[in-house]
Protein backbone atom coordinates (compact mmCIF):
# COMPACT_ATOMS: atom_id res chain seq x y z
CA UNK A 1 0.00 0.00 0.00
CA UNK A 2 1.11 3.55 -0.51
CA UNK A 3 2.12 5.60 2.45
CA UNK A 4 -0.77 7.35 4.21
CA UNK A 5 -1.41 10.77 2.81
CA UNK A 6 -0.37 9.84 -0.73
CA UNK A 7 -3.65 9.69 -2.63
CA UNK A 8 -4.29 6.60 -4.79
CA UNK A 9 -4.82 7.42 -8.46
CA UNK A 10 -8.36 7.19 -9.73
CA UNK A 11 -9.34 4.48 -12.21
CA UNK A 12 -8.72 6.85 -15.13
CA UNK A 13 -5.36 7.98 -13.78
CA UNK A 14 -4.29 4.37 -13.14
CA UNK A 15 -5.13 3.34 -16.71
CA UNK A 16 -3.32 6.38 -18.10
CA UNK A 17 -0.22 5.47 -16.09
CA UNK A 18 -0.34 1.89 -17.39
CA UNK A 19 -0.81 3.01 -20.99
CA UNK A 20 2.08 5.47 -20.70
CA UNK A 21 4.37 2.40 -20.79
CA UNK A 22 2.65 0.74 -23.74
CA UNK A 23 4.26 2.10 -26.89
CA UNK A 24 1.66 0.77 -29.32
CA UNK A 25 -0.94 3.49 -28.80
CA UNK A 26 -3.69 2.03 -31.03
CA UNK A 27 -4.19 -0.59 -28.26
CA UNK A 28 -4.51 1.99 -25.45
CA UNK A 29 -8.30 2.21 -25.72
CA UNK A 30 -8.79 -1.56 -25.48
CA UNK A 31 -6.40 -1.84 -22.50
CA UNK A 32 -8.09 1.10 -20.74
CA UNK A 33 -11.54 -0.42 -21.31
CA UNK A 34 -10.49 -3.82 -19.96
CA UNK A 35 -8.70 -2.46 -16.88
CA UNK A 36 -11.53 0.02 -16.17
CA UNK A 37 -14.06 -2.82 -16.31
CA UNK A 38 -11.94 -4.86 -13.88
CA UNK A 39 -11.51 -1.95 -11.46
CA UNK A 40 -15.21 -1.08 -11.56
CA UNK A 41 -16.15 -4.70 -10.88
CA UNK A 42 -13.76 -4.87 -7.93
CA UNK A 43 -14.94 -1.48 -6.58
CA UNK A 44 -18.57 -2.60 -6.72
CA UNK A 45 -17.78 -5.88 -4.91
CA UNK A 46 -15.92 -3.94 -2.20
CA UNK A 47 -18.87 -1.54 -1.79
CA UNK A 48 -21.25 -4.47 -1.55
CA UNK A 49 -19.13 -6.23 1.07
CA UNK A 50 -18.57 -3.09 3.10
CA UNK A 51 -21.34 -0.50 2.72
CA UNK A 52 -19.48 1.83 5.10
CA UNK A 53 -16.84 2.46 2.43
CA UNK A 54 -17.13 5.57 0.29
CA UNK A 55 -17.02 5.29 -3.48
CA UNK A 56 -13.55 6.92 -3.51
CA UNK A 57 -12.22 4.58 -0.81
CA UNK A 58 -13.49 1.50 -2.62
CA UNK A 59 -11.97 2.75 -5.85
CA UNK A 60 -8.64 3.41 -4.12
CA UNK A 61 -8.62 -0.13 -2.71
CA UNK A 62 -9.42 -1.62 -6.12
CA UNK A 63 -6.63 0.40 -7.73
CA UNK A 64 -4.17 -0.67 -4.99
CA UNK A 65 -5.06 -4.34 -5.58
CA UNK A 66 -3.99 -4.00 -9.20
CA UNK A 67 -0.37 -3.37 -8.23
CA UNK A 68 2.19 -1.07 -9.72
CA UNK A 69 0.92 0.59 -12.95
CA UNK A 70 4.45 0.95 -14.29
CA UNK A 71 5.24 -2.77 -13.85
CA UNK A 72 1.90 -3.68 -15.42
CA UNK A 73 2.48 -1.25 -18.30
CA UNK A 74 5.96 -2.62 -18.98
CA UNK A 75 4.65 -6.21 -19.04
CA UNK A 76 1.76 -5.27 -21.34
CA UNK A 77 4.17 -3.49 -23.65
CA UNK A 78 5.89 -6.85 -24.30
CA UNK A 79 2.70 -8.43 -25.67
CA UNK A 80 1.69 -5.24 -27.48
CA UNK A 81 4.87 -4.89 -29.47
CA UNK A 82 4.61 -1.91 -31.84
CA UNK A 83 6.39 -3.56 -34.78
CA UNK A 84 3.95 -6.45 -35.39
CA UNK A 85 1.12 -4.13 -34.34
CA UNK A 86 1.91 -1.56 -37.00
CA UNK A 87 2.62 -4.27 -39.52
CA UNK A 88 -0.82 -5.77 -38.86
CA UNK A 89 -2.49 -2.35 -39.29
CA UNK A 90 -0.49 -1.68 -42.46
CA UNK A 91 -1.45 -5.11 -43.81
CA UNK A 92 -5.14 -4.54 -43.04
CA UNK A 93 -5.12 -1.10 -44.65
CA UNK A 94 -3.27 -2.43 -47.72
CA UNK A 95 -5.69 -5.33 -48.16
CA UNK A 96 -8.71 -3.01 -47.82
CA UNK A 97 -7.24 -0.46 -50.21
CA UNK A 98 -6.36 -3.18 -52.72
CA UNK A 99 -9.89 -4.59 -52.49
CA UNK A 100 -11.45 -1.17 -52.97
CA UNK A 101 -9.20 -0.42 -55.95
CA UNK A 102 -9.98 -3.82 -57.43
CA UNK A 103 -13.70 -3.19 -57.03
CA UNK A 104 -13.40 0.27 -58.52
CA UNK A 105 -11.35 -0.84 -61.52
CA UNK A 106 -13.25 -4.06 -62.19
CA UNK A 107 -16.80 -3.02 -61.54
CA UNK A 108 -16.89 0.73 -62.12
CA UNK A 109 -16.86 0.45 -65.94
CA UNK A 110 -19.61 -2.17 -65.74
CA UNK A 111 -21.58 -0.07 -63.25
CA UNK A 112 -21.19 3.01 -65.47
CA UNK A 113 -22.32 0.97 -68.46
CA UNK A 114 -25.35 -0.29 -66.54
CA UNK A 115 -26.16 3.21 -65.33
CA UNK A 116 -25.95 4.55 -68.88
CA UNK A 117 -28.14 1.69 -70.03
CA UNK A 118 -30.77 2.53 -67.41
CA UNK A 119 -30.46 6.31 -67.77
CA UNK A 120 -30.47 6.30 -71.58
CA UNK A 121 -31.43 2.89 -72.92
CA UNK A 122 -30.98 2.27 -76.64
CA UNK A 123 -34.33 2.76 -78.34
CA UNK A 124 -33.38 1.12 -81.64
CA UNK A 125 -32.35 -2.43 -82.49
CA UNK A 126 -28.70 -2.80 -83.42
CA UNK A 127 -29.40 -4.66 -86.64
CA UNK A 128 -32.25 -2.34 -87.68
CA UNK A 129 -32.34 1.45 -87.36
CA UNK A 130 -29.68 1.30 -84.65
CA UNK A 131 -26.98 1.18 -87.35
CA UNK A 132 -28.16 4.47 -88.89
CA UNK A 133 -28.48 6.18 -85.50
CA UNK A 134 -25.02 5.01 -84.51
CA UNK A 135 -23.48 6.31 -87.75
CA UNK A 136 -25.75 9.32 -87.94
CA UNK A 137 -22.96 11.71 -88.99
CA UNK A 138 -22.10 9.57 -91.99
CA UNK A 139 -25.69 8.88 -93.03
CA UNK A 140 -27.60 10.99 -95.53
CA UNK A 141 -30.68 12.00 -93.61
CA UNK A 142 -33.61 13.38 -95.63
CA UNK A 143 -35.88 13.99 -92.67
CA UNK A 144 -35.62 13.47 -88.93
CA UNK A 145 -38.38 14.82 -86.74
CA UNK A 146 -40.75 14.15 -83.90
CA UNK A 147 -44.27 14.10 -85.32
CA UNK A 148 -46.88 16.26 -83.62
CA UNK A 149 -50.14 14.75 -82.37
CA UNK A 150 -49.19 11.29 -83.65
CA UNK A 151 -51.05 9.54 -80.82
CA UNK A 152 -53.55 6.67 -80.97
CA UNK A 153 -55.43 4.97 -78.15
CA UNK A 154 -56.18 1.26 -78.35
CA UNK A 155 -57.74 -0.55 -75.41
CA UNK A 156 -55.23 -0.30 -72.53
CA UNK A 157 -52.52 1.26 -74.63
CA UNK A 158 -51.48 4.70 -75.72
CA UNK A 159 -49.43 4.46 -78.92
CA UNK A 160 -47.39 7.33 -80.24
CA UNK A 161 -44.90 7.86 -83.06
CA UNK A 162 -41.87 9.35 -81.33
CA UNK A 163 -39.46 9.89 -84.17
CA UNK A 164 -39.46 9.63 -87.95
CA UNK A 165 -36.18 9.14 -89.77
CA UNK A 166 -36.12 9.17 -93.58
CA UNK A 167 -32.97 8.02 -95.37
CA UNK A 168 -32.36 7.12 -99.01
CA UNK A 169 -32.16 3.45 -99.92
CA UNK A 170 -30.09 3.04 -103.05
CA UNK A 171 -30.09 -0.72 -103.29
CA UNK A 172 -33.77 -1.46 -103.15
CA UNK A 173 -35.27 -4.80 -104.16
CA UNK A 174 -36.42 -3.35 -107.49
CA UNK A 175 -33.06 -1.69 -108.12
CA UNK A 176 -34.73 1.73 -108.24
CA UNK A 177 -33.76 4.47 -105.76
CA UNK A 178 -36.15 4.41 -102.83
CA UNK A 179 -36.61 5.67 -99.29
CA UNK A 180 -36.24 3.96 -95.97
CA UNK A 181 -38.63 5.33 -93.39
CA UNK A 182 -37.98 4.50 -89.76
CA UNK A 183 -40.68 5.09 -87.16
CA UNK A 184 -40.00 4.82 -83.46
CA UNK A 185 -43.28 3.69 -81.93
CA UNK A 186 -44.01 3.90 -78.23
CA UNK A 187 -46.69 1.94 -76.37
CA UNK A 188 -47.55 3.04 -72.82
CA UNK A 189 -49.64 0.84 -70.52
CA UNK A 190 -50.37 0.87 -66.80
CA UNK A 191 -50.35 -2.89 -66.37
CA UNK A 192 -46.86 -4.45 -66.59
CA UNK A 193 -48.33 -7.81 -67.64
CA UNK A 194 -49.65 -6.10 -70.79
CA UNK A 195 -46.23 -5.00 -71.91
CA UNK A 196 -45.03 -5.53 -75.44
CA UNK A 197 -48.31 -5.87 -77.39
CA UNK A 198 -47.71 -7.95 -80.49
CA UNK A 199 -48.42 -5.47 -83.24
CA UNK A 200 -45.18 -5.34 -85.20
CA UNK A 201 -45.83 -8.10 -87.76
CA UNK A 202 -49.27 -6.63 -88.45
CA UNK A 203 -48.15 -3.07 -89.02
CA UNK A 204 -48.25 -2.01 -92.62
CA UNK A 205 -47.98 1.26 -94.49
CA UNK A 206 -49.54 3.05 -97.44
CA UNK A 207 -48.23 6.21 -99.11
CA UNK A 208 -50.16 9.12 -100.64
CA UNK A 209 -49.61 7.68 -104.13
CA UNK A 210 -51.47 4.47 -103.23
CA UNK A 211 -48.41 2.19 -102.86
CA UNK A 212 -48.82 -0.41 -100.12
CA UNK A 213 -46.06 -1.72 -97.93
CA UNK A 214 -47.32 -4.92 -96.22
CA UNK A 215 -46.07 -6.35 -92.93
CA UNK A 216 -44.69 -9.87 -92.78
CA UNK A 217 -47.75 -11.30 -91.04
CA UNK A 218 -49.78 -10.25 -94.07
CA UNK A 219 -47.33 -11.85 -96.43
CA UNK A 220 -47.25 -15.32 -94.83
CA UNK A 221 -51.00 -16.18 -95.15
CA UNK A 222 -51.09 -14.70 -98.68
CA UNK A 223 -48.17 -16.88 -99.68
CA UNK A 224 -49.85 -19.95 -98.15
CA UNK A 225 -53.12 -19.25 -100.00
CA UNK A 226 -51.30 -18.64 -103.27
CA UNK A 227 -49.46 -21.95 -102.84
CA UNK A 228 -52.72 -23.81 -102.27
CA UNK A 229 -54.87 -22.03 -104.82
CA UNK A 230 -52.53 -20.43 -107.37
CA UNK A 231 -55.33 -19.54 -109.70
CA UNK A 232 -57.75 -17.98 -107.22
CA UNK A 233 -55.26 -16.31 -104.83
CA UNK A 234 -53.02 -13.56 -106.13
CA UNK A 235 -49.24 -13.79 -105.68
CA UNK A 236 -48.31 -12.10 -102.42
CA UNK A 237 -46.63 -8.73 -102.40
CA UNK A 238 -43.20 -8.75 -100.79
CA UNK A 239 -43.39 -7.41 -97.27
CA UNK A 240 -41.55 -4.17 -96.77
CA UNK A 241 -42.77 -3.02 -93.36
CA UNK A 242 -40.47 -4.58 -90.82
CA UNK A 243 -38.87 -4.26 -87.42
CA UNK A 244 -40.07 -5.13 -83.95
CA UNK A 245 -39.85 -4.35 -80.24
CA UNK A 246 -36.58 -2.66 -79.32
CA UNK A 247 -37.00 -1.82 -75.64
CA UNK A 248 -39.32 -3.34 -73.07
CA UNK A 249 -39.88 -1.83 -69.65
CA UNK A 250 -42.76 -2.66 -67.28
CA UNK A 251 -44.86 0.26 -68.46
CA UNK A 252 -43.41 1.33 -71.79
CA UNK A 253 -42.52 -0.63 -74.93
CA UNK A 254 -40.67 0.81 -77.90
CA UNK A 255 -40.76 -0.56 -81.45
CA UNK A 256 -38.12 0.03 -84.07
CA UNK A 257 -40.40 -0.14 -87.13
CA UNK A 258 -39.14 0.65 -90.62
CA UNK A 259 -40.51 0.64 -94.14
CA UNK A 260 -38.13 -0.05 -97.01
CA UNK A 261 -38.49 0.65 -100.72
CA UNK A 262 -40.79 3.60 -100.20
CA UNK A 263 -41.55 5.46 -103.42
CA UNK A 264 -39.29 8.56 -103.48
CA UNK A 265 -42.12 10.55 -105.08
CA UNK A 266 -44.39 10.03 -102.06
CA UNK A 267 -44.70 12.88 -99.56
CA UNK A 268 -46.75 11.13 -96.91
CA UNK A 269 -46.75 7.64 -95.46
CA UNK A 270 -49.45 6.27 -93.15
CA UNK A 271 -48.46 3.52 -90.75
CA UNK A 272 -51.45 1.33 -89.87
CA UNK A 273 -52.56 -1.56 -87.71
CA UNK A 274 -55.87 -3.16 -88.73
CA UNK A 275 -55.50 -6.79 -87.83
CA UNK A 276 -59.11 -7.12 -86.65
CA UNK A 277 -60.83 -5.45 -89.58
CA UNK A 278 -61.32 -1.78 -88.89
CA UNK A 279 -58.30 0.49 -88.59
CA UNK A 280 -57.14 0.54 -84.99
CA UNK A 281 -53.90 2.47 -85.29
CA UNK A 282 -53.10 5.06 -87.93
CA UNK A 283 -50.12 7.38 -88.04
CA UNK A 284 -49.97 9.69 -91.08
CA UNK A 285 -46.35 10.78 -91.33
CA UNK A 286 -44.74 13.36 -93.57
CA UNK A 287 -41.73 12.18 -95.54
CA UNK A 288 -40.41 15.70 -95.91
CA UNK A 289 -40.03 16.45 -92.22
CA UNK A 290 -41.98 18.67 -89.87
CA UNK A 291 -45.26 17.85 -88.16
CA UNK A 292 -47.71 15.46 -89.73
CA UNK A 293 -51.42 16.00 -90.13
CA UNK A 294 -53.45 13.64 -88.02
Amino acid sequence: MDAPGVPQPTIGQFCAKVCAWVRFWPDHDAITAELTAHLEDHRDVLLERNPALSQAEAEAQAVAAMGDPEALGRELDKSHNPLPGWFQILFRVSVRTALILLLVFCFLPKATYLYDLIAAPPLYNDDDTGVIVEHYDQAEVLADYRPEHAVCYLEHYTFSAERVLVTPREHSVTGEPALRVSVLLKAVHLNPSLRCPRISGWLWAEDDLGNRYPGWNQYDPAELLHGLYPEQAAAPELYTTMGGPSLQTPFVTYYDVYVIDVDPEAVQLTLRFDRYGKIQLSFPLSLKGGGADV
Binding site: G67, P69, S79
Partner: peptide, 15 residues
Protein backbone atom coordinates in the same frame (compact mmCIF):
# COMPACT_ATOMS: atom_id res chain seq x y z
CA UNK B 1 -1.56 -11.90 -6.41
CA UNK B 2 -1.51 -8.36 -7.71
CA UNK B 3 -4.54 -8.38 -9.92
CA UNK B 4 -2.83 -6.52 -12.74
CA UNK B 5 -0.48 -9.49 -13.25
CA UNK B 6 -3.32 -11.40 -14.88
CA UNK B 7 -3.57 -9.17 -17.94
CA UNK B 8 -0.06 -9.47 -19.39
CA UNK B 9 -0.48 -13.26 -19.06
CA UNK B 10 -3.85 -13.21 -20.81
CA UNK B 11 -2.60 -10.91 -23.57
CA UNK B 12 0.50 -13.07 -24.15
CA UNK B 13 -1.63 -16.22 -24.27
CA UNK B 14 -3.95 -14.50 -26.73
CA UNK B 15 -1.05 -13.46 -28.91
Amino acid sequence: MKEGTLYPILHTLEK
